[in-house]
Design a protein around this nucleic acid. Sequence first.
DNA 1: TCGACTGAAAGTGTATACACTTTTTGTTTT
DNA 2: AAAACAAAAAGTGTATACACTTTCAGTCGA
Lengths: 221, 221
Amino acid sequence: METSSTRQIVESLTKAIVEHRLHPGTKLAEQKLADHFGVSRTLVRQALFQLSQNRLIRLEPARGAFVAAPSVEEAKQVFAVRRMLETEMTRAFVRQVTPSKIKALREHVAQEKRAVDNQDVPGRTELLGDFHVRLAELMGNQVLAELLRELISRCALITLMYQSTNAAEHSNEEHVAIVKALAAKDEETAVRLMNEHLMHVEENLTFDRKLPSNDISLALS
Amino acid sequence: METSSTRQIVESLTKAIVEHRLHPGTKLAEQKLADHFGVSRTLVRQALFQLSQNRLIRLEPARGAFVAAPSVEEAKQVFAVRRMLETEMTRAFVRQVTPSKIKALREHVAQEKRAVDNQDVPGRTELLGDFHVRLAELMGNQVLAELLRELISRCALITLMYQSTNAAEHSNEEHVAIVKALAAKDEETAVRLMNEHLMHVEENLTFDRKLPSNDISLALS
DNA sequence: TCGACTGAAAGTGTATACACTTTTTGTTTT
DNA sequence: AAAACAAAAAGTGTATACACTTTCAGTCGA
């Protein structure tokens, strides 16, 4: 199971949704997707099911798949969970910090900065989110990393892509500050900065509801 | 999409796995399951895919589905995540506690007690896990509740079912103590008790590796 | 006796067929 | 002109067919 065809479809659709080439509410007809990817509906259905588990699309019985349009309420809940998780993660990180871990984080934020400076919107979105996943990975907790990745991709649909260049720069600067506090093993500061950072990201949410784009092929091409 | 047939298959298999009628490592052949449930492989495959997302089974390309056998390492990571999440959840709960919420929790632990006293093993397993989900629900955070439910079902495969009656009683008593601290709005005590509780549950893990049972029909009947 | 080969059996991966549901469109009726 | 209906079109849900891969049993050769 889990052939690479389906993975490719999932990735392609995920990218299109997160980058808002496919707007919330857009219908994803199975046959059209199948034609576009040159496979049968079987594989498309697998991919759609997977995307529905990631909350990127909604599946309605006998009606089909639609790009998800998370409510403000849901977004707030996701952020509340992230704050809970990442507060404690930051605390735990300080207790087991090593120079090589700090080095890895510094390299990451440097990469973020390049993407932000280059106005590489998809790139910076991914990297800014990955910072949080990297923290989990460096702690050696793969379960935590996967969970965070899931939560962040769920946010991405509603937040990071709406981020202005300014907001992205701000995020990057906050990451730098967090790394600094981590390096200094200053637990309380690190935790406070992380919490503030997540609040800032949340504040930047814009809940524009754009009209569905009905031309799937165009959005994916 | 998401007809009730697949849900029923998922529930049936989930129950069988969590209750250890299907041991870790057991192969789940699609046609056999299809015959057993009286449906085509299509629906079985959907169900298996869903179970793999829940980490209850493992899908190996071209080899099929096997009941998951989480490693000690993974179990520890799951518990680490639960502690992070639930520490903060407990803290937040204290800040927004109301008499009606306490009442709901008291009723829940009473129900737990009945199941423990009656030696209702599947029932008590479910209820003891649900306590934590109930907390999230009472906070009004559905995202958190679903996440916890997922983490707990993932633990269930490796822990709660191995729980002795003694351990179950102990868990129930700890729930009572936590509710008491919550009712008193004693944040630090509540958090401490919750952390200790999760550590106790984790300590009770037994990592027996039983042999796969090859008779699927028997296990499901 | 053990290991390497070979063919058959079993099982998974993908495509297709068909039933049934929803949506759309064109027509009729008020 | 708007609402109600009917037939057709489009789309989803499930079963089945078939290709390809893995597994297993049996045979041969060292």
